[in-house]
Design a protein around this nucleic acid. Structure first.
Lengths: 236, 236
DNA sequence: CGAACGCTTGAGTGGAGTCAAGTAGAGTGG
DNA sequence: CCACTCTACTTGACTCCACTCAAGCGTTCG
């Protein structure tokens, strides 16, 4: 089923089977998208939302000179731009980082959910609030942590998210992001990102090679970067 | 009416009169709270949400050494921690900056709204997504702007929000925040905040004295800080 | 093979932080 | 009415983390 990973391990109360069926029924189409492709552009009026089945998607804002700030990185199981449903248009761009498999959900189908399935509606709302909680953590990261801690914090977060949907074993996982991408997420230059990765490796905390990440000492990394996963609302 | 400023000037479609009445009816109590008082603490289970009628409220996260990062500043008309309704507990603290008048709304009353008033539910959802949009803009601000632009951007944002509810005439407004508070919002030290305010004054952009802010040249300030208010979804 | 892209490293610079020493003003109490 | 206190604000000197500029390396792919 398409939404098997939606809110997986995210909360004790489960989505009711009939609500889950309604969600599956709301899908418009499923398709594959190549890497580095823009899905939604800022200010563009949108009539459907995108659910990520496979791959990595990011959301970002560019400054005047085109320097990019990522505001979110999405993994399978994320309803990437569900917030476009109440908002109608977005304040940022959405693009794939890797080749992706996505499902698109027309907003008119979500209208039906809102009217007929208040419980499911609350889960959808909840999922957009998880994104907001991550936004807040990113604000904290950028506002209060130094470069090394920012990088460590980012890796801790993405690992926890991937683990919740079975894409990390707690120590190593695939992450097809360049050092430039990582810099855009952490608010540091690619050159400095490179230096931070070297230092993290030298300290035996984390290693990244060819899109493969190994957390060599996750507890130490979490300590260094003041990472506390409670904001992710993951069970267990 | 209590919710007169709720989503004021925020969208063309208005909340239906009967939905508005239902919202008014959902209020538990209205009360006054002194300045610098914690309203909700991180991880605390909450059963009601807070709507701000008068005053300033902030949300924040502290790092290990107690250094604070604000993640939001709320003005009258904001449903401060509505997100606590689906989330059940918060990942951050909520506190007053000034003396405030607030309305508390029990979550059991919101359950009724969800079941019986899907249109209103969507407005409530929308309002939490506005906060998320502001979070994103704060990420951009911290990740991509230098200290002076961050400060300018913050003032542009708060002015636009205050103007939407009639608390700014576009040039001057009251803002009872200390330079320390402002630094915690912009991710810079209070000492540097002081220097930035001096520079902004020297450049004829903005003046702040005794909690009174004057935007001397709003267009120039917006240009300097790459401020584009579209993310606030304000009409007109 | 050459081009393109991503990664790596060094040298020098500068913006923001830190530390320290003040001043200004509001509120309090003798 | 004037010490006294407390908080917020102000300014200078020095430091350092991260940026910039620059050059070079390694892979992949056409």
């Amino acid at each position: 089923m398409i939404f098997d990973d939606f809110l997986r391990h995210r909360r004790k109360e489960q989505i009711l089977p009939e609500d889950r069926a309604a969600l599956e029924a709301s899908v418009g189409e499923v398709r594959s998208v190549p890497a580095r492709m823009t899905l939604v552009r800022k200010d563009e009026r949108v009539h459907f939302s995108t659910y990520l089945i496979e791959g990595l998607i990011c959301r970002y804002m560019d400054d005047r000179e085109g320097l990019r700030q990522l505001v979110a990185v999405h993994v399978p199981g994320d309803f990437v731009d569900l917030h476009a449903y109440p908002l109608k248009h977005l304040d940022h761009d959405v693009a794939t980082l890797t080749a992706c498999k996505i499902a698109t959900v027309p907003h008119r189908n979500l209208d039906i959910v809102m009217r007929e399935r208040p419980e499911l509606a609350k889960f959808l709302w909840f999922s957009t609030l998880l994104d907001a909680a991550m936004h807040r953590e990113w604000i904290f990261r950028l506002g209060r942590l130094n470069a090394m801690a920012r990088v460590g914090h980012f890796f801790c977060e993405i690992e926890a998210k991937l683990r919740a949907v079975g894409l990390s074993d707690g120590a190593s996982f695939e992450l097809a992001m360049t050092q430039n991408d990582l810099g855009e997420a952490c608010g540091i230059t690619p050159v400095h990102m490179n230096r931070m990765l070297r230092m993290l490796k030298e300290q035996g905390l984390l290693q990244m090679r060819a899109g493969q990440v190994q957390l060599l000492d996750r507890p130490a990394l979490a300590r260094l970067s003041e990472f506390d996963p409670s904001y992710l609302f993951i069970d267990e």
